[in-house]
Write a protein that binds this DNA or RNA. Structure first.
Lengths: 190, 190
DNA sequence: GGACGCTGTTGACACGAAGTCAACTCTAGC
DNA sequence: GCTAGAGTTGACTTCGTGTCAACAGCGTCC
């Protein structure tokens, strides 16, 4: 089999396993069996188990969708409403992956893992800022930091919606719209 | 040495190690050396390494302070301002521990870890609701869910402040005050 | 056609960490 | 002094990771 195909196949199997179980009790042997290959081949393609895990993470984190096209032109409020509605739509469509990505760890978690998440958070923040048409603003760095923080609210609220079931989708939408508008209007301006 | 003392000593050493390094490369042997005991003793007191880790987590998560006493009586806005200011003060005082607790993991992270964090988040949310004097409200469950989500904003923004350095403390304070007021006034009411 | 080299693949080994167990030490009570 | 029990540990077993040399398929050159 072709090298890139095999690599991809192993990566897919590993992703599935890492999504559904704690990574410490997913062994490379198990991944190899799932992919129908011998264990050393996993190491051949990905080096260490840790490298493979990080690659799975990158793939998961950068799948989350935020359709950048077809943004509505209108008041800030209307734009934010639509953008966040679409965003929640995408979250719902990929809810399994999303829940996996926002599941949390604790102290002693991997700094490389944290770095990947941080980078992904910033990419999402930039897209969001672009979607609401503020990417040309001076002092965007500060706005970005605020929107990254907003991302924490987004993750936590979608978890309440999708995992805990203590919030409805409409609650989450209202919360996020109100929070983002507050940030842009009241908190961001010096 | 007395059993509880020894247990405590091992727990303290383990906490220090888990705080500063990824838990997968902290070995029980290392913990044992740090505590000046033989490795099996660690297992004797805590069973598995996982159990010890979870106990460290519980201790870390439930240390975070939110002084419940001396709440100011006045407008909602003034109360929220003071409560969050004090909260940030506590965060700053225990910033190392705090940063350790909000450091993130990824998919495949432990469900037990997630459960501990979720419980801690709810405790903090309840204290916050109590501090702003809304714990007697009907439909508190929904408010609590919203405040738990707000906790996500609080974590992410304090991370921007303490780790990334992209926000000032005053930024975080303004952000959290505005967001919490928005939640209580605009989002929470049906 | 056979030798050669390259890529994909694997069996077998080395190393290290987790968890278990029987045995040792020391103190308290008879 | 002797026993009982708690605290403690050395030694062993098991398991997972990572490495290495070797094998199989296949295209290429003499």
């Amino acid at each position: 089999m072709d090298a890139t195909e095999r690599r991809e196949q192993i990566l897919v199997c590993a992703t599935r396993l890492f999504e559904e179980r704690p990574h410490h009790d997913v062994s490379t042997a198990e991944i190899a069996v799932a992919a129908g290959v011998a264990r050393p081949l996993v190491h051949h393609y990905f080096g260490t188990k840790r490298t493979l895990y990080l690659e799975v993470l990158r793939r998961l984190y950068f799948i989350p969708p935020l359709s950048p096209a077809g943004l509505p032109s209108g008041s800030l409020e209307a734009t934010v409403e639509v953008v966040l509605d679409r965003w929640l739509e995408g979250i719902w469509r990929h809810r399994n992956t999303w829940v996996a990505t926002i599941s949390v760890g604790g102290p002693g978690s991997d700094p490389d893992v944290a770095a990947i998440m941080r980078e992904a958070d910033e990419v999402v923040a930039d897209r969001l800022i672009e979607a609401i048409g503020l990417s040309a603003d001076p002092d965007v760095a500060r706005l970005r930091a605020l929107v990254v923080a907003f991302g924490g609210l987004a993750k936590a609220s979608t978890r309440q919606w999708l995992v805990a079931g203590t919030l409805e989708r409409s609650d989450v939408h209202r919360l996020l719209v109100a929070a983002l508008l507050t940030i842009v209007r009241d908190v961001y301006p010096r």
